[in-house]
């Protein structure tokens, strides 16, 4: 066995001299300064995110400490907590409570609906079914948000498919009785809290399914076998093994459903009663009213709520499932 080729390795230098020009020289320089290389790569994205995004958040935060002159409608650029105090007027505080209650209800319901989907996809779906479930969850996640909302406007409309369904089944009395209920009822489903609630669940459901599925995928089947081997009935295995291991996934999903509900202003505007949610308050105050300070103060509310929520979730170890 001999190495092919002509050059005698002995006469070849072991090291090449550095390049004097061109990309080779730039490569040498970058190689010699790896810190500078990373800095150069990060410069553009860091500049963009820091200046544009963090700068905007700072501008928002700053505005929340300004106030509006109610006579001229101009922003007064003096630091004050008056705008935050306005949040605690009964009308505004109602908006906050209403939004948080809705976010909590949506999160709970999403978790209940999402769990069987995630559990089936993680534990039982194989091959084709696995791909089908995967696409079945990814497509709604990415498909148009507005179209989803619009579809539900069609479904919940007084002359829409749901009313037709109840009529066909001769159950109209049931729908009427439900709509007559306080709080959840209304003149039609599309103008009730129930309608808002349904659309929220629909829009955020994929955000709940995926983290739960990811958490369940990580549970080795041998662990379930071990549980049943140790004498647990399936229900006990579920209660004591599966559910605790899925919990970080549920918390991770809830971060999305909670945060998205807190900030949304389009769903309650299209489907729901005329009472405002936080997102709508932000939208109206900055828009027609031109009260950017109050809009900014309202926008800080979800940030604070989410910060507290994330802090709790982090302590519960939910980020491993993200």
């Amino acid at each position: 066995m001999t190495a092919g080729g002509s050059a005698d390795p002995a006469v070849r230098p072991a090291l090449d001299p550095p390049a004097r020009f061109g990309l080779g020289r730039v490569s040498d320089l970058l190689w010699r300064h790896p810190g500078a290389t990373v800095t150069a790569m990060l410069a553009l994205p860091a500049l963009w995110l820091c200046v544009i995004y963090l700068g905007s958040l700072a501008a928002l935060l700053a505005h929340s400490f300004f106030s509006i002159d109610h006579f001229s409608g101009m922003v007064r650029y003096d630091l004050t907590l008056d705008t935050y105090a306005e949040l605690f007027t009964p009308a505004n505080f109602d908006i906050i409570l209403r939004t948080v209650a809705m976010a909590a209800a949506v999160t709970l319901a999403s978790a209940v609906i999402a769990f069987p989907i995630a559990y089936f996809a993680a534990r039982y779906a194989r091959g084709r079914w696995k791909a089908l479930f995967y696409l079945g969850i990814m497509l709604p996640l990415w498909s148009s948000y507005l179209v989803k909302v619009y579809a539900w406007k069609l479904i919940l409309a007084r002359e829409g498919i749901l009313t037709w369904l109840f009529e066909t089944l001769h159950l109209s009395w049931l729908l009427d009785a439900y709509l007559a209920l306080p709080v959840v009822g209304g003149t039609s489903l599309s103008t009730s809290y129930t309608g808002t609630f349904l659309v929220f669940i629909y829009a955020w459901l994929p955000f709940m399914v995926l983290p739960i599925q990811a958490a369940l995928e990580r549970v080795p089947a041998s662990m379930l076998d071990a549980s049943s081997d140790l004498g647990a009935r399936p229900s006990q295995t579920f209660r004591h093994v599966v559910l605790p291991l899925a919990a970080p996934g549920i918390v991770a999903g809830s971060i999305f459903t909670f945060s998205l509900t807190l900030g949304d202003y389009i769903i309650p505007q299209i489907v729901g009663s005329s009472r405002l949610f936080i997102g709508q308050a932000v939208y109206t105050h900055q828009g027609t009213a031109g009260n950017i300070p109050l809009a900014a103060a309202f926008a800080v509310v979800p940030i604070v709520i989410m910060a507290v929520y994330l802090w709790i979730a982090k302590r519960a170890g939910a980020f491993d499932a993200l």
Binding site: S56, L260, Q286
Partner: peptide, 14 residues
Amino acid sequence: ALPGVITGIALRAA
């Protein structure tokens, strides 16, 4: 991660 309305109003304020 933050609700879209916050990104929106922040950019608008900026």
